[in-house]
């Protein structure tokens, strides 16, 4: 039993440590390193002043994840961007959990026939990839009609959409969990003994629901990160897209716009560098790897919380009863009826 706790806690600890150190490094970066940074070098010389490389530099000791076109180290960019990406995914996951808890509770109060129909309605989400749905709802504000919305809308609106999009499915999930808990024997007993709604919830339901919601929160952080990575590939990045006129096509005369991230937010890094994927693969691999590592950390926390070993352990656990042998002696017995002699 001890070992099982150890391994699950270890997973949670590793994941948390990774995320916390990444976030704190990112925060510190914003305050300390950013200020006294020299403009990046586009050319790299060796000790004899011989030119050895032109930006973008491939991964090396000086540039652990390579550098971008201007010679900025990707490692530093990713550290800098971590606070935006992870922070936003935490906000989104939190919003999703709160909303789906409220929605789930509301659905739970509704009759079951109604819920069946709601379930059928939300089945449409099984045929709609979330990425496409969020893209269609966010792109008009951030990309297609970007001229007519102000910066506040461009930042807050996508977050709200990302929260709302998953609400139906998650609410159904919470509702099912609530249904399972309220059907337990001790809840029914408590109800029969006259417990009111609030008491039931506080004493019997929330202890079971809280770990589920915590797990859901962690899983949703992972989901939000995946959506960010996908949206980055679709040219959307949360936290503001800046569209700049880059060039004009000589043949057709069409203006070529490129979208820039205003921060070093990871999905922005993906979308800015996607066109360099083939000539300079590290430029896209760096932010994607950052996503992969963050998602891995989040998932290991979720895996640890879920406790997959529990099932396995309880199956093989053999309970050994210690046999206590106490010698039986004559004075342990007593005659009920004392025979008077």
């Amino acid at each position: 039993m001890k070992k099982f706790w150890f391994s699950n806690r270890l997973l949670i600890a590793i994941g948390l440590m990774f995320l916390i150190s990444l976030l704190s490094a990112s925060m510190i970066f914003g305050f300390v390193i950013e200020q006294d940074r020299t403009p990046p070098e586009k050319l790299l010389f060796d000790e004899n002043n011989q030119l050895i490389a032109i930006a973008p530099f491939p991964p090396s000791v000086q540039y652990p994840l390579g550098s971008d076109i201007d010679g900025n180290s990707f490692f530093l960019k990713i550290i800098d961007g971590a606070k935006y990406t992870i922070g936003l995914s935490l906000i989104i996951a939190f919003g999703r959990v709160i909303l789906s808890f409220l929605g789930g509770y509301l659905l739970f109060l509704m009759p079951s026939q109604f819920n069946k129909r709601i379930n059928n309605l939300s089945d449409a989400f099984h045929y709609t990839p979330t990425t496409i749905l969020t893209y269609v709802l966010i792109a008009p504000v951030v990309l297609t009609f970007s001229w007519s919305y102000d910066l506040t809308t461009k930042i807050i609106y996508p977050v709200i959409i990302l929260i709302l999009v998953s609400a139906p499915v998650l609410s159904m999930y919470v509702r099912n969990e609530l249904n399972l808990i309220y059907k337990k024997d001790y809840v029914i007993t408590s109800k029969l003994m006259g417990a009111n709604h609030f008491h039931l919830y506080r004493k019997h339901v929330s202890p079971f629901l809280k770990p589920k919601l915590l797990l859901m929160f962690v899983q949703q952080v992972g989901q939000a990160l995946i959506i960010f990575a996908h949206l980055g590939l679709l040219n959307i990045f949360i936290g503001g897209t800046e569209t700049r006129l880059m060039d004009i096509d000589i043949e057709t005369g069409e203006p070529i716009y490129r979208h820039f991230s205003m921060s070093n937010e990871w999905s922005g890094l993906i979308s800015q560098n996607f066109e360099y994927a083939i000539p300079f693969p590290w430029m896209i691999l760096a932010p994607v790897t950052a996503f992969a590592l963050a998602i891995l950390a989040v998932n290991s926390i979720a895996y640890g919380l879920k406790g997959p070993f529990e099932h396995y352990q309880s199956k093989t656990k053999t309970t050994t009863m210690k046999e206590t042998v106490s010698p039986v002696t004559k004075d342990k017995f007593q005659m009920i009826k004392k025979i008077s002699s």
């Binding site: 995946i226 990575a229 590939l233 996503f291 998602i295 891995l296």
Partner: peptide
């Protein structure tokens, strides 16, 4: 399973 799909595709 934890690696995002775009990571695997790109790799």
């Amino acid at each position: 399973e934890s690696l995002p799909d775009i990571f695997i595709i790109l790799i």
